[in-house]
């Protein structure tokens, strides 16, 4: 079933250095890396940024193929931006002229540059979700956002809602799969027919899905009340987050990376 192919936001358990890192640090460093990817203005800088990503993938001990798989769904976007760049950016040597279409060396360079940038961006952020379980991730988010309590933002409840939402994604996918199978067993035709027919074919799937989502929500609420859940105040945690040497080292490593990228920008000519 195609629903099993969705890997974005999926967690792959493991014991690698990346898996064991403090999720807060990992989250901040991922954002730092996303920032870093936008720094380079020349090929040397971009290769360093891409090389860093490859290094972290190796550290995570996940199959490289998996990381590439995360890119697959957004390939059309990358292709489209590349095409737009090729046609709209002009400068350098004209390679091809036909009417209003001009393809220039600069256009191709920009297109390739931005494509690689987006690739790094997506694989970098999916590496975060691959190596961090959703609960740890929201836990980290809650901690990082906790200063916002000052402006009366209920960070705990926000994080709890996110945890629950993330927790139920696989459950809902599984449920959808099951309902689809059940209706297919009764001869539901989901694959053929025109636009309207296909939309109508979704009704036997969406209605049971809504009904079961509401049922699950009620059950969960009851279960939480039974265990005396009453919000974040005074709540302690079973798993405390601790920063370790590895975390400090990786922070310094990423800072160095960003410094290096700026230095390369400064010393080498820009290609954009």
């Amino acid at each position: 079933m195609m629903l099993n192919e969705i890997t974005i936001g999926q967690y792959f358990p493991g014991r690698s250095l990346l898996h064991r890192m403090d999720p807060r640090v990992k989250l901040v460093l991922t954002f730092a890396y996303i920032f870093a990817v936008f720094v380079p203005r020349n090929w040397a800088g971009l290769s360093v940024a891409a090389g860093f990503l490859l290094f972290t993938v190796i550290l995570s001990r996940l199959p490289v193929r998996l990381v590439f798989k995360s890119v697959k769904p957004i390939l059309p976007v990358i292709l489209l931006t590349s095409l737009l760049n090729i046609f709209y950016v002009t400068g350098g040597v004209h390679l091809f002229d036909w009417g209003f279409i001009h393809i220039t060396t600069k256009g191709i360079t920009t297109a390739a540059f931005i494509a690689i940038r987006i690739l790094c961006l997506i694989s970098g952020s999916s590496l975060l979700t691959y190596t961090t379980s959703p609960t740890t991730l929201t836990d980290a988010l809650e901690r990082l956002l906790s200063p916002l309590k000052v402006i009366r933002l209920n960070v705990h409840e926000l994080a709890m809602m996110m945890t629950i939402a993330l927790r139920f994604i696989p459950t809902l996918i599984e449920e959808t799969d099951k309902i689809m199978s059940a209706q297919k067993a009764r001869g539901a035709d989901l694959e053929s027919g025109g636009m309207m027919q296909r939309v109508r074919a979704l009704i036997p799937i969406l209605i049971p899905l809504f009904v079961s989502s509401f049922r699950r929500a009620y059950e969960l609420a009851t279960a939480m009340e039974c265990r005396c859940y009453r919000g974040g105040e005074g709540r302690t945690r079973m798993k405390q987050l601790h920063m370790k040497t590895a975390d400090v080292v990786s922070v310094m490593f990423v800072l160095l990376l960003i410094a290096l990228l700026f230095y390369l920008n400064y010393t080498l000519p820009s290609v954009l």
Partner: peptide, 14 residues
């Protein structure tokens, strides 16, 4: 599927 009818677990959910 019309010749081999399958009733799933908890079929009332469908």
């Amino acid at each position: 599927r019309f010749q081999v009818g399958l009733v799933f677990q908890y079929p009332e959910h469908q």
